[in-house]
Every structure is written in structure tokens, then in C-alpha cells.
Amino acid sequence: MELKDIINPNNLVYEKPELLTENTMHYCPGCSHGVVHKLLAEVIEDLDIQDKTIGVSPVGCAVFAYNYIEIDWQEAAHGRAPAVATGIARTNPDKVVFTYQGDGDLASIGAAEILHACNRGENMVVIFVNNGIYGMTGGQMAPTTLIGQVTATTPNGRDVGRNGYPLKITELIAQLPGTSYVTRQSVHTPATIRKCKKAIAKAFQAALDKKGTSFVEVVSTCNMNWKMTPVKANEWMVENMFPFYVPGDLKDSSKADPESYTPLKN
């Protein structure tokens, strides 16, 4: 069989989701954001909720996420996406709201906003892309930067005495009663990407079911600022980040007592 016979719409098994726009993503080659965006588009498409989903993209590389997925979007100030999402979700209880935040945004400047939104159990999805570094500003130390990790502001490696410890904020979030589903995923292999998609779908379903805050961390790479090839960056992530940011579900209330979660009034 010749190539032209195989390449036929009848034989199509994988194509770009319709909800992804034609805009070329501004991300560096091999950036994890592109994969997470694609998964979001697929999940929103699969659940057929593009007419009721509102995304919030705060400052960071993914502030431009609104250029890539065909839904309504709000750009937000650095760290404030959970507050912005609270404003949308409270006044639009029939809509599905998600934030798309990086580690500097969520775990540093926006630590108060994320903890309180999750603690109130705002009915929303949080996508937390953790690559251990500030991407957009050029590779400075993030709260999640590993001990010894070299960044633009820790040129000799993160030193605990000077910079404190890497923050496992997802573990903190999982303690909060307002969250119903807290998981840590990655997108570095076909298998983990498919698993991550399931996690994102579950989080969006939880929002549709009004189960409070669902939180999906995606341990990711920033190969450009890590100064590695995309392939090497994935290897480095598995070797160095996974032992500290261990992938897996941290909380899944669908498996626990369903009465343990009290939905918000008002």
C-alpha cells in the first residue's frame, strides 16, 4: 500500500483538536505547555463544554494561552488567577472556570490567592505547570526550584541557607478541605500524557459536578532555561524532579466518603 493510500481521511487516527486555534504557539521548541494546552482543548471538546468554559491565564509564559484555545479567556495579574476565577465562578455558577498557572505564579506571588481559593473550595479547576523555574523572565529561581539547581538567580545552585527550601505546595493544597481532587501528573511520554489527560478530564468533570476545587499539577520541563535539549530535559526531570515531586494522586474524594466534601453555598 502506498503512502497516498494510507493518508486518507478515512484512516485518520490523530489530528489537531478543533478547539486549538491556528496560531503558532510562542513557546520554545519542546515546551511542556504545548502538550498541556492540547490536552485541555481535547478535554473541553470531549466534554462539549466550550460554550460554558472560561479560562484564566495569569502572568507567566502561558499568559498567552488565550491565543490558542477557542474559548472565552481572561488574562490575569501575576498570581491572582484564583481570585479572578473566584469572581467568575461565584457570579456564574453554571459555568466551568479554570486557571492555568506556573510555579512562580501559583506558589510564590499567588500563594495566598491559591491557598484561600482552594480552602474555600471554589468550584474550579487549577492547572499548575511546575517546571521549577521562571520561564518568561529568563530562568530565575522559583519556589519549586530544587536544592542545588542552577538558575539565573542561583548561579551556583539553590542554597538552602540563602534561598530556603523548595515548596511542595501541592501537598499543602491536598490538606485543604475545599479541594476534592488533587493530583500530580507529567507529560513526558505518550503513556503519562494519556494519563494526564484522564486527570484533567476528571478535574473538569468534578467542576461540572460542583465538587469544589480540583487541582492538577503537571511536573514539566523548561528545557530552554534548564539549558538542555528537550529530550535531555525530560530525562533530567525524571531523574531529579520525580523523587521530590512524586507523581500520583494526592487526594481523590470520589474514592472517599462523598459526604466529606461540603459544596459551597451562594
Binding site: 490575569a76 481570585a83 479572578v84 457570579t91 456564574n92 459555568k95 490567592e113
Partner: peptide, 17 residues
Amino acid sequence: AESEIASIHMIYGAAAS
């Protein structure tokens, strides 16, 4: 809200809808 910062950004989100 947890702070004035959060309140004004809640205002942003709701106003934008």
C-alpha cells in the same frame, strides 16, 4: 476575600463576565 488584592481581582473576574 482573603485580602484587598484578592477582592479587586475577584471584581476583575466577575466584571469581565
